[in-house]
């Protein structure tokens, strides 16, 4: 008997992957939202799978201090920044509840797999955020950082370090250079996330990652796929492989 606690972002990650009955197969009898009012359940381990936001960390610290559950297994969809981890630790020490936190994991799962060969970074209105003339620098940086973190999660999951190509002078270049920096910073550490994959007989050939900018790739915007799925997407709207009529 285990409780799974999610936030809207991680709920969208899990939804296309596992159905409720499949969650039961893995002992998850209850799945709840972090932001909702929840009753304490004693003698039950809780698995938290949430985004690495400050708000989430604060809420988790509160849950641990109550305590809402017996033990806490904390999983963040992307790496938890050091200051947030320290804040979580100090809050738990303050309320003398640190022993209830079993483990804290960085999961590198910050993307939504919709099909075998299709994923989404699940960043709504990202085009507007990047192209709005009134957008602040911090908003653009935040949007780019979100994309970089999502693509980095994909690369860690695949265990590959790609060669990156992009057009010059746009959002795609910003994403590409930040991603390159992120990869370089990570690869200098000895036991990095790509070591295991390369030792397990990973390919010596590096894949090619092409980042396109919709402003320059105008053909994409006017090209329409003539299959059932794009038709449904355009007529009714397709979200997380689901259609709401």
């Amino acid at each position: 008997f285990k409780v799974l606690v999610l936030d809207p972002f991680t709920r969208d990650i899990i939804a296309p992957l596992l159905k409720v009955n499949e969650l039961r197969k893995y002992g998850i009898t209850l799945h709840l939202m972090l932001g909702a009012d929840r009753q304490p359940i004693s003698d039950v381990p809780a698995i938290y799978f949430v985004a690495q936001t400050e708000q989430n960390v604060k809420r988790i610290a509160l849950d641990v201090s109550v305590p809402l559950y017996d033990t806490f297994h904390l999983n963040f969809s992307s790496p938890l920044p050091r200051p947030s981890l320290e804040e979580l630790a100090s809050e738990c020490v303050k309320t003398d509840s640190i022993s209830r936190v079993n483990k804290v994991y960085d999961q590198y799962l910050g993307f939504v797999s919709l099909e075998k060969g299709l994923f989404s970074l699940a960043q709504p209105r990202s085009y507007v955020k990047l192209n709005d003339p009134a957008a602040k620098d911090t908003d653009v940086e935040q949007a780019v950082a979100g994309m970089v973190e999502g693509i980095f999660s994909v690369l860690v999951s695949l265990g590959v370090v790609p060669i990156i190509r992009c057009p010059k002078g746009g959002a795609a270049e910003m994403v590409a250079s930040e991603l390159e920096k992120r990869l370089r910073d990570h690869l200098v550490t000895r036991n990095n996330l790509f070591t295991e994959a390369s030792q397990a007989g990973g390919s010596f050939q590096r894949p090619l990652l092409c980042l396109f900018d919709r402003n320059f790739e105008l053909a994409v915007a006017v090209q329409h796929g003539w299959t059932y799925q794009p038709l449904v997407h355009e007529m009714i709207g397709l979200n997380l492989n689901r259609v709401t009529v």
């Binding site: 992957l17 969650l23 893995y26 002992g27 999951s157």
Partner: peptide
């Protein structure tokens, strides 16, 4: 298969195994 890799990672997490 990226989707399968993500499913495996999620299942590992639900089974309380380390990543």
């Amino acid at each position: 298969d990226l989707r399968q890799k993500q499913i495996d990672a999620v299942v590992k997490m639900l089974n309380l195994n380390s990543p």
